[in-house]
Design a protein around this nucleic acid. Structure first.
Lengths: 221, 221
DNA sequence: GCATGTGAATGGATTCACAGCT
DNA sequence: AGCTGTGAATCCATTCACATGC
């Protein structure tokens, strides 16, 4: 079993696992910033409240990175996760819909941070085109979508339009050659295989909280 | 087996199930709007692509609502889900952090829609206090948090502050008596039992897409 | 005949527990 | 002695398949 297995021979890694990898990365970045050189799975498990075996399993997907009896080297593991997550180079992102949400996302730290760059906002509204977000992300015309994607080497799109427009936008994005899309519109999109879609449904999150409160009221906890 | 079992004797219902209930509700609202009176689980399963048995199981959590050989009565089932999700009455929400994201969320349709009402934005910045979002949600001082929660009968809080401030805000919200919190800050909060927390981590979603793209590049699909 | 409601079977993900390395 | 890496065991969710009732 060669250590430092390359990512290309990884077996399918679940969505849940990759989400946790991001969490680990954030933790490691913090640990590195405070000068910690080594960390054990048990220690990380404490920090979030996770199970240490799960952390070891997650990390072991990519080869053996720890040292028995010692733990993991913080910097080395961090660098490795950065590479595995594919954010060791900058990826260009566009946001479709320059409304409230689109504008807010465009200026959001963490969207314009290591690994990602918002290249443009895109809208159909002539009144918005030519303007820019607070931090200076330009609003470009939807009609130019294909050209923008090509010329700016865009890899990821964020859908921040109304529910009614989302399916058309999704189809156009696929047509424009994008393979990764993050959707904020509250609709069930008819998806295209091969194109990775993640959806964030704000409304559902609120309803889930409401459901919880209802349970408390009814005494079901 | 009494039909129309009351929600109070439901067994624990998973997060995954309740998320789907929201989706079904949205679908039923649509079907009602186009005048459909009856729908089968198979029909709904088609619409999203889900398994019909799963839909039946999800719905059966709350008692028997369908008619064998016929399907579900759209209006009746919808009304029932609304009640089960606890949005048959208005719940007041506050948003902590009147930055880009907080402002966008305050004006977001679906946050100010059947079942929810944004009562206020809350911030520490004196320059923001007293102003309002585009749709008129007022920005109130963080120092008044407790009073606002009490007087406005607030049940849900949304954390839209920086990662650094989020833990303090979380603790203050719990202290103020809130039981349901939606967090947008990219941190692992040290949580308090009994308080329901949902987190939306925008950064993790982007990283997950990046990971997918990385896989495509490496030919792992 | 047709669609629900549900026990039984399957499939995944998490956790346990320990062998193996430092 | 300590901590990783991992098969085995457990837990939870989804799917199958069919008895039940309209």
């Amino acid at each position: 079993m060669s250590s430092n297995r390359l990512s290309s021979d990884r077996d399918v890694i679940s969505e849940l696992t990759t989400g946790r990898l991001s969490v680990y990365l954030r933790c490691l970045t913090y640990l590195e910033s405070i000068g910690k050189e080594t960390v054990s799975s048990a220690e990380m498990a404490d920090r979030f409240h996770l199970n240490s075996a799960q952390i070891r399993k997650d990390l072991a997907c990519f080869g053996e990175f720890g040292t028995r009896g010692v733990g993991y080297n913080v910097s080395r593991l961090k660098e490795h996760l950065v590479r595995e997550l594919g954010i060791d180079r900058r990826r260009n992102v566009i946001i479709i819909g320059a409304g409230n949400l689109g504008m807010a996302l465009a200026d959001y730290r963490g969207f314009n941070d290591s690994g990602f760059r918002i290249a443009a906002l895109i809208d159909v509204d002539p009144a918005k085109i030519g303007r820019a977000s607070r931090t200076g992300i330009p609003v470009l015309p939807y009609s130019e979508l294909k050209r923008i994607v090509r010329e700016q080497n865009v890899e990821i799109a964020v859908i921040a339009v109304t529910a009614g427009a989302a399916q058309d936008v999704y189809d156009a994005l696929v047509e424009a050659g994008l393979n990764a899309i993050l959707n904020f519109a509250p609709v069930q999109l008819r998806t295209h295989a091969q194109v990775k879609l993640k959806s964030v449904d704000l409304r559902i999150n609120l309803e889930s909280l409401s459901f919880y409160l209802k349970g408390v009221e009814d005494g079901t906890t």
